[in-house]
Design a binder for these strands. Structure first.
Lengths: 209, 209
DNA sequence: ACCGAACCGTACCGTACGGTACGCCTCGTC
DNA sequence: GACGAGGCGTACCGTACGGTACGGTTCGGT
């Protein structure tokens, strides 16, 4: 059964509905199993019938949860005027730091795990959503900065997309896949800062004008 | 119930057992669901009872499948004598090419999906196995080459582990996570060659002596 | 005060799947 | 040829979970 309304535009959600999604997310974060309709209903103190009325079916609930939570990920915007090499470097480094912090967080790991599992079956929605709000959102934020850097004569890059993908690689490296595969020692703040700094240095070494 | 014998050392497997594991793998590759004991039994033309006798339980079967298949991944070894800059570059580039080819293959994607899902529940085995035969195997093959490059005065690196992780990032970038999340347009051979070449160039730009 | 909508709690149904039991067949060994 | 081990096919059981039904309660509107 199709969900009655699939709010691709979010925030047609009442507070109570957000409570439900929070419950689902909580269940998801501490152990992907346990995320059952009965479990969500119990944790949110609501009835299963309500869940089905609001979200159509299990998949609708999952989609709503992922969509709503993924949309929360916000990177700090960077104002592109008054761009000199130092502010650009600071911006990129902070970018990497924020990104690594989000990536290694419980919620991000749980969401990506769910989406990856989901992409294994035929239904592809969750993977697309997470990709959109994850990698692609990062790209949308990052590429204008790179282009601004190029226009300011600070960076030498032909294709912003390719440069972004390299930046992605320099920042994320093997961190994400290791977390997804169950290595639960999250890097510390200091570690993240260090890695972001090195990513920035490396990126400038490769693309600095 | 625990599997009767958990052959952490592989290849205590008869041909018939390998047939079974192949069936499981096939089921896994075309759509992670459908990978059910009944499905495997049907596909391998064997009885469920035999499956349970051989592998203990579903988890044992999955583990055996992943372990056996993951062990198949072989990178071409690199002889570290007579190392000049050109052969090192060729080795690293081929390394990247092979790695991207494996990573984007159906089997690798399916295996990693399964392992990631599995790591979401409390049982962590599969994640560890894939990590060991994936990233870690790559590291074990790669780091000696990097150290040889350093000893030959071709590379400047303090910590091989850190250098390897950067190499990993330069090669893999966002490719793996995108495949895992369901983006099924696999990069072509030409695309992979291009990316491996750029990864090699970038790596030398960062670590070349 | 009354009514209806929304919702909670719980009981219930159907099915899919992990795991077991059992009858039959095949084949190697004596 | 007799026999037992190993294995195939199938029927079966228990349970977990997605999904539905329904009675009881709260609450806002009239």
């Amino acid at each position: 059964m199709a969900p009655p309304n699939l709010f691709i535009d979010d925030e047609a959600l009442t507070d109570r509905q957000k409570d439900v999604l929070n419950a689902a997310l909580g269940l998801l974060v501490d152990g992907g199993d346990g995320l059952t309709m009965t479990g969500v209903a119990r944790r949110a103190s609501c009835s299963k019938e309500t869940l089905y009325k609001w979200f159509g079916d299990r998949d609708g609930l999952l989609t709503a949860t992922v969509q709503w939570q993924a949309a929360k990920v916000r990177m700090v915007p960077v104002d592109r005027q008054t761009l000199d090499r130092r502010t650009l470097a600071i911006a990129l480094e902070k970018f990497g730091r924020d990104w690594l912090t989000v990536l290694t967080g419980d919620i991000s790991v749980a969401l990506n795990r769910l989406a990856v599992s989901h992409a294994g079956q035929e239904k592809r929605n969750l993977g697309a959503i997470v990709l959109e709000h994850g990698r692609n959102a990062m790209a949308r934020r990052c590429k204008p900065v790179l282009e601004a850097g190029r226009d300011a004569g600070l960076l030498t890059l032909d294709d912003p997309e390719k440069a972004f993908r390299t930046f992605f690689g320099l920042v994320v490296r093997d961190t994400q896949i290791r977390m997804l595969l169950g290595e639960h020692e999250r890097p510390s703040m200091e570690q993240i800062s260090l890695e972001a700094r090195q990513a920035r240095e490396h990126f400038f070494a490769l693309y600095g004008a």
